[in-house]
Amino acid sequence: MKSVILKVANIIGETGVYRFLCPGRVPVFMLHRVTDGSDGIPGDMTAERLRGYLRYLSSRGYSVLTMDQLWQFLNKGTSIPSKSVMFTIDDGFSDHHDVAAQVFDEFGFPLNFFVITGLLDEQLWPWDDQIAYAVNRTRISVTDLQLPFGGKYSVNLADIGLRRTIREIRNALKIVNQEHVYQWLSAELYSKLEVDFPDTIPREYRPMSWDDARSLKERGHGVYPHTCTHRILSTLALEEKQHEINEARKRVEQELAQCPDVFAYPTGRPSDYDRADIEEVKRAGFKMAFNTVPDYIRAGCSQYELPRFSLPENTADFLQIVNRFEALKEKVPRQPNRSRSFLPTR
C-alpha cells in the first residue's frame, strides 16, 4: 500500500504542484562510490542507475546547478529555475573520475567533487574504509579492540556479522579523539584482526590523480577540499582542525591553480563539526560548506551548514526528493522520520 501511495504521489509531483507549494527549495545530492558493475568497487550506486536518474532530469528540463549558481542564489538572491538540483561526490576515489564523471559528461551536467587531499597524494586512504577492509578479511571471530583514548569494543563476528561490526566500530571511532586514528588502525585493528596492513592503497580504494582532478575542472566540474585525512573535525584539537582545513585548501590551490572556496565536513553530521570548525572554515576563505543533514537548501539558510541528501538507491525515493514531495511532507504534522535511504551512508 505504501509503495502504491508513493507512486501516485510521484505522478502528481511531476505536474509541479509540490514545487509550487514548496518554492525556493534546492535538493543537493551526495554520492560516495559509483560502480560500473565489473570493477569490484564497494557501494550500491551503479552507473546505470545513476544514468537513469540523470536521464530523467534531462528529459524533463531540470537544471543541474554549479557551485557558482548556488552561491548566486544564496548570497545575491539570484533566481534559479524551480526545477533545479545539484550533485556532489565525496572523497576522491578513482571511480569518481573514471565512472561517475563519465556519466555526468554524457548529459553535460556538472558534478562537484570533494576530495581528501591526502588520498590524492596517496599518503593514506580513509580510516572508515580501512575498517571495512580489515573486517572483511579477518579470520578472527572474537577479539577485543582497545579504542583510542580508552574504551573497548568486543568483536564477535559469529553473533552480529560483518556489516554490523563495521558499522559499530566506525561509530565507536566517530566519538573519540581522532588525532592518532591512522596509527591506531595499523597498531591495533589490523594487529588484533590478524590482517596484513597493505603496503599500498588497495585497488578498490585507489584514488583519482591530480591530473584527473585537473581534467575534471577543464570539463566544467567543481573540485573542492574535504580535509587532508578525513578525520572528524569536532574530535580534534584546534591546531589539528586548522591543519585539516588550511592544508587541504592549499593543496587543491597548488594542484589546480585556482583558489577553492567551498568545503565539505568529513562525515558531516551536526556532531562531527562545531562552532570552532565553522569559524576556521570562514577564516580559511571558504564561502560555503556542506554537511550531510538530509534537507533542502533554501534562501536564508546558513552558508556554512548546507544540507545534502544521500542519493537514494531506488527511483521512487529519488523522485520524492526531486519533485519536492519530501518538502511537502515537512508541512504535515506527525510525519515519521525520513527514509533511511535519505540518510548519510558514512
Rank of each mutant, 00 (worst) to 15 (best):
I5Y: 13
I5L: 15
V17N: 01
Y18L: 04
C22G: 11
R25A: 05
V34K: 00
D39A: 14
P42V: 03
G43C: 08
G43E: 04
M45A: 08
R51H: 15
R51F: 13
L54C: 01
Y56P: 06
L57M: 09
S59V: 00
S63H: 15
L70M: 15
N75L: 02
P81G: 12
G92W: 03
F93V: 00
H97W: 10
H97D: 08
D98H: 11
D98R: 14
A101F: 04
D105I: 03
L111W: 00
F114D: 03
I116W: 11
G118F: 07
D121C: 07
E122R: 14
E122Y: 11
L124F: 13
W125F: 14
P126W: 02
D129N: 15
Q130C: 13
Q130G: 15
A132E: 11
Y133M: 00
V135S: 02
N136G: 13
R139T: 09
S141H: 15
T143R: 07
D144M: 04
P148L: 01
G150L: 09
Y153V: 05
R163D: 14
R164A: 07
R164E: 14
T165G: 02
I166F: 09
R167N: 09
N171I: 10
I175R: 03
E179C: 05
Y182P: 02
Q183V: 13
W184T: 01
L185M: 10
E188W: 12
S191T: 11
S191Q: 10
D199N: 12
D199F: 07
I201F: 04
E204T: 13
D211R: 13
K217M: 11
G220F: 13
G220R: 10
G222H: 10
G222Q: 05
Y224M: 09
T227H: 08
T227R: 01
H230C: 03
H230V: 06
L233V: 06
L233G: 03
S234M: 06
T235S: 10
L238I: 09
E244I: 12
E247W: 09
E247A: 11
R249K: 08
K250A: 12
V252Q: 02
L256Y: 00
D261E: 11
F263L: 04
Y265R: 03
T267D: 04
R269T: 08
P270C: 03
D277W: 02
I278G: 06
I278M: 14
E279C: 02
E279K: 14
K287V: 10
M288R: 04
T292V: 09
Y296T: 06
C301I: 11
S302Q: 12
L306A: 09
P307D: 02
R308A: 05
F309W: 14
F309P: 03
S310T: 13
L311M: 10
P312S: 07
P312A: 05
P312N: 07
P312Q: 05
E313H: 14
A316V: 08
L319R: 01
N323G: 06
N323V: 08
N323F: 08
K329Y: 14
K329W: 14
K331L: 10
Q335H: 13
Q335T: 13
P336V: 08
P336F: 07
R338M: 07
R340F: 12
R340P: 04
S341K: 12
F342Q: 01
R346G: 12
